[in-house]
Deep mutational scan, measured.
Amino acid sequence: PDDEWKERLREAEEKNNWKLFEELARKAGVSEEKIEEWKRRWS
């Protein structure tokens, strides 16, 4: 299951679909801290 969400995150990233990325990350149990960090790195 871990690989599956990583794959989906990669797809979201490729499409630059931040909303989807964020949603998937939350569902995968990624901390808000980590998500914010990704946001900063991404923008």
Rank of each mutant, 00 (worst) to 15 (best):
I35K: 00
L24I: 13
L9H: 04
R10A: 08
F21V: 05
E32G: 03
K39E: 06
N17P: 03
E14I: 13
N17G: 08
K19L: 10
E7K: 10
S31P: 13
E32V: 04
R10D: 05
E22L: 10
E14L: 13
K27W: 07
N16Q: 09
E36H: 04
S43K: 13
L9C: 15
L9M: 13
S43C: 12
K19S: 12
A12E: 04
R40H: 11
I35F: 02
G29A: 01
E7F: 03
G29H: 02
K27C: 13
A12D: 04
E23D: 10
R26S: 02
R41K: 13
I35E: 00
K39A: 04
R26H: 02
R10T: 06
P1D: 09
E33N: 05
E23Q: 07
A28I: 08
E11G: 06
E37H: 03
E32K: 06
R10L: 08
E14G: 08
K27P: 00
K39C: 07
W42I: 05
W5P: 04
W42G: 04
E33T: 06
K19Y: 11
K15D: 10
V30Y: 15
R26N: 01
E22K: 01
A12L: 09
P1W: 13
A28L: 13
A28M: 12
R41L: 15
K6E: 14
K34S: 05
A12F: 11
A25D: 00
R40D: 15
G29F: 01
F21M: 04
V30I: 14
N16A: 06
K6T: 11
E13R: 15
F21P: 00
A28Q: 05
V30D: 00
D2V: 10
K39R: 12
R40L: 09
G29I: 00
W5L: 09
N17Q: 08
R10V: 06
K15G: 09
E37Q: 03
A25C: 08
E37F: 02
L20Q: 10
D2E: 11
W38L: 13
K27V: 05
G29M: 02
W18A: 01
L20P: 04
N16I: 07
V30N: 01
R26A: 02
A25H: 01
E33A: 12
R8T: 09
R10C: 15
R8Y: 07
E36A: 08
K19P: 14
E13D: 08
A12N: 04
P1K: 10
P1F: 14
R40V: 08
E23A: 07
E11Q: 11
W38R: 03
E13Y: 15
K27G: 06
D2C: 15
E32W: 08
L20K: 07
E7D: 11
S31Y: 00
I35V: 02
N16D: 09
W5I: 08
W42V: 04
N17L: 14
W18H: 02
K15V: 07
K39V: 03
K6G: 11
K6D: 09
K15N: 14
E23P: 00
